[in-house]
Computed example of a mutant assay.
Amino acid sequence: MIDTFALLRPLWFLAIPLVAALALRAAWRSAPLGDWGKAVDPHLMALLARRGAVLGGRRQANLAAALAAGLLALALTGPAVERPEAATFRNLDATVIVLDLSRSVTEGGRFKEARQAAQAVAEAAGTRSAALIVYAGDAYTAVSPTTDRDSIATTLFALDADTVPDRGTHPERGLALARRTLAESNVVSADVVLISDGDGIGQAAEREAAAIRDRGWQLHGLFVPAARALPPGAPQTDRAALDRLAAAGGGRAADIEAAGPVLDRVGASTAQHLAAGGYGVLAFADLGRWLLLLALVPALFLFRRSA
């Protein structure tokens, strides 16, 4: 039930405490005469009271106004439920796995776990399309966007240190290829998951991460630690660089051994992904309009005329 409910504009919740504070202040000032008791001479006030010329404030009007304002603020938060047809928009949501096949990863002793992490990301994407990109000195599309998880698993099993003939580590090229793949597929919501040991991440990769975020997509990172000493001259792992890159891409970072935070983001429903990308109207039915009608009930009391 929680997965199918969302608040499209949650910041409007901040207006509810403000409405409550204003209502309490108004009720205090209206009982019985507000500040008039301080401004008018006591003897004159007593005379006016005897002649029936003094009418005390009414808390009821303030209560009706506060209730109407509170319902308006609640309506503006955008309480919504997932549309039954939200799953049909899965073609607008995709996942791209970018796997580092450089020497430091393939010879670091955790390459098998890195491939398993890539498969876990593909499985977390559910029925949405997923693509696999590999890189070292250059980047290549290993699997085009597909819903066939078996083809991704088969390709991952076949990867090794010689798959990419170009030596080096250029994650920015893998991210650039992922961005172009998503743009060509015309998706509106996407997760790009970089599986790397952090080597080679610099300003160029951070610019690609920012470009991915600016398109409304998210870039996550899964860190591959080295299980054994790398050969002489091999680049060293850099978890901090991967964390910075994920932050620049608006996503999460985690180790391949504890990939839960990233898998949870990838595995969120299509409706949640579309809402995060600003397309919540496609996936959620806004119930705020019905709360607006409900707010009319206490508002009617504000127009009541006294005898």
Score class of each variant (00 low, 15 high):
residue 253 A to V: 09
residue 126 G to T: 10
residue 235 P to M: 02
residue 297 V to A: 14
residue 48 L to E: 08
residue 130 A to Q: 09
residue 28 W to Y: 11
residue 9 R to G: 02
residue 95 T to E: 09
residue 213 R to E: 12
residue 59 R to L: 11
residue 7 L to G: 03
residue 257 E to F: 13
residue 8 L to T: 08
residue 120 A to D: 10
residue 193 V to Y: 00
residue 238 D to V: 04
residue 50 R to C: 02
residue 153 A to E: 05
residue 103 R to N: 12
residue 111 F to K: 05
residue 257 E to Y: 09
residue 89 F to M: 06
residue 193 V to N: 02
residue 247 A to L: 12
residue 46 A to D: 09
residue 32 P to T: 09
residue 93 D to K: 06
residue 245 L to N: 07
residue 75 A to R: 03
residue 276 A to L: 06
residue 294 L to C: 11
residue 238 D to C: 02
residue 69 A to M: 15
residue 70 G to N: 03
residue 218 Q to W: 07
residue 86 A to K: 03
residue 63 L to S: 02
residue 115 R to W: 03
residue 85 E to P: 00
residue 304 R to N: 06
residue 151 S to A: 15
residue 42 P to K: 10
residue 270 T to Q: 12
residue 46 A to W: 06
residue 67 L to Y: 01
residue 284 F to R: 07
residue 99 L to Y: 03
residue 56 G to W: 08
residue 172 E to T: 07
residue 50 R to G: 00
residue 143 V to M: 01
residue 10 P to G: 03
residue 205 A to C: 05
residue 87 A to R: 03
residue 59 R to V: 15
residue 188 V to N: 11
residue 250 G to T: 08
residue 174 G to C: 04
residue 191 D to C: 09
residue 102 S to H: 05
residue 233 G to A: 06
residue 184 E to R: 13
residue 99 L to V: 12
residue 90 R to T: 11
residue 235 P to L: 05
residue 25 R to A: 15
residue 257 E to I: 08
residue 44 L to F: 07
residue 150 D to G: 13
residue 161 A to V: 14
residue 152 I to Y: 01
residue 213 R to I: 02
residue 211 A to S: 13
residue 171 P to N: 05
residue 217 W to C: 10
residue 50 R to E: 13
residue 164 V to H: 01
residue 286 D to I: 04
residue 35 D to V: 09
residue 283 A to G: 06
residue 73 A to S: 11
residue 278 G to V: 07
residue 260 G to H: 12
residue 23 A to I: 03
residue 29 R to P: 00
residue 289 R to P: 00
residue 110 R to Q: 09
residue 274 L to M: 08
residue 185 S to V: 04
residue 27 A to E: 11
residue 67 L to A: 15
residue 160 D to I: 06
residue 191 D to T: 02
residue 211 A to C: 02
residue 128 R to E: 10
residue 253 A to P: 00
residue 117 A to M: 14
residue 186 N to Q: 14
residue 202 G to R: 09
residue 46 A to L: 14
residue 83 R to Q: 12
residue 43 H to I: 13
residue 260 G to C: 05
residue 232 P to Y: 11
residue 302 L to A: 09
residue 241 A to L: 06
residue 152 I to W: 01
residue 178 A to N: 06
residue 77 T to Q: 02
residue 169 T to R: 01
residue 126 G to C: 15
residue 279 Y to T: 01
residue 203 Q to T: 10
residue 202 G to D: 14
residue 261 P to F: 05
residue 191 D to A: 14
residue 100 D to I: 12
residue 8 L to Q: 08
residue 82 E to K: 08
residue 215 R to D: 13
residue 37 G to V: 10
residue 28 W to H: 14
residue 166 D to C: 00
